[in-house]
Simulated assay, not measured.
Amino acid sequence: MHFLHVLRFSLAAALTLFVNLANADAASRYCPDFLAVKGAAEPTHRGEFTFSPFTHHWSQNPEHKKVVMVAFDEQLPGDRLCGVSFFTNSFGQPSVYVYAGQQFNALLGVPKLYAKVTGGLMYGYVAPYENKVPLNYNGFSPAIIPSLGYRLSQHDSVQLQFLGNAALMFSYGRQF
């Protein structure tokens, strides 16, 4: 029952954030102002919704569960971003990741190829799985997640998130 309660809360929080980002005017931001590059051009999109239905674990563990993730990023001047991700971790525990990051466009001279690096604080790996992520303290741990993306259209992309030596996450992104 606890899992369903947390999942409902997480989905409600994600939906609220998405609606607020989609309806806010360009001048209002949810990310702290110091993350934006002063004097840089405004981003072409307000934010991005990301959904991952599948994660491939490098090692097979009978305790692994299906990982599902939804994330919302706010785009900032200077190809910066901040956001929140709600997911079920590899052991079925509801989890959240709050982060800031940088996007690198036209990677290797390919206009549609990009990379992102985010860093932040994750919560969710609790007993008996608290030792499955480094530097975990009462379920809280730092995280750095690099990803590689490819733009399918002006608004749509596919992405790979590299989850350390544990897994590779496949996702779809939709900018708005």
Rank of each mutant, 00 (worst) to 15 (best):
F9W: 06
A12R: 10
A13Y: 00
A13H: 02
A14C: 01
L15W: 09
F18W: 12
N20C: 14
L21Y: 03
N23Q: 10
A24E: 09
D25K: 10
D25Y: 08
A26P: 03
A27D: 13
S28R: 14
R29N: 11
R29L: 04
R29V: 02
Y30S: 06
Y30H: 12
C31I: 01
P32V: 10
F34D: 10
F34Q: 06
L35W: 05
A36T: 02
V37D: 10
K38L: 14
G39I: 14
A41Y: 03
A41Q: 10
E42K: 14
E42G: 07
E42D: 12
T44D: 09
T44G: 09
T44P: 00
H45Q: 14
R46E: 07
G47R: 00
G47H: 03
G47I: 02
E48F: 06
E48Y: 03
F49H: 07
F49P: 01
T50L: 03
S52F: 00
P53N: 05
P53Y: 04
T55Q: 04
H56N: 04
H56A: 13
H56S: 08
H57K: 01
H57W: 11
H57P: 00
W58I: 09
W58P: 00
S59V: 11
Q60S: 13
Q60T: 13
P62W: 08
P62S: 14
E63P: 00
E63R: 11
K66Q: 14
V67Y: 01
V67W: 03
V68R: 09
V70P: 01
V70N: 03
A71L: 07
D73R: 09
D73S: 04
D73T: 07
D73N: 14
E74K: 02
L76D: 07
P77R: 04
G78T: 02
D79Y: 12
D79G: 12
D79H: 15
R80I: 01
R80T: 03
R80F: 11
R80C: 08
L81T: 09
C82A: 10
C82E: 09
S85A: 15
S85K: 06
F87V: 01
F87N: 02
S90D: 04
F91V: 07
G92D: 06
G92R: 06
G92E: 05
Q93A: 08
P94T: 11
Y97S: 03
Y97V: 00
Y97L: 04
A100Y: 08
G101Q: 06
Q102D: 05
F104C: 04
N105I: 02
A106E: 15
L107E: 08
L107Y: 13
G109L: 05
V110G: 00
P111F: 04
P111K: 06
P111N: 05
K112S: 15
Y114K: 00
V117I: 14
G120H: 13
G120M: 12
Y123T: 15
Y123M: 10
Y123F: 15
G124K: 03
G124L: 10
Y125V: 01
V126R: 13
V126H: 09
Y129K: 01
Y129W: 14
E130V: 09
N131L: 12
N131T: 15
N131H: 15
N131S: 14
V133E: 13
V133Y: 10
P134G: 05
Y137L: 02
Y137Q: 09
G139V: 00
F140C: 00
A143G: 08
I144P: 08
P146L: 02
S147N: 02
S147H: 01
S147P: 01
L148T: 09
G149E: 06
G149W: 03
G149R: 03
G149N: 06
Y150C: 11
R151M: 11
L152Y: 07
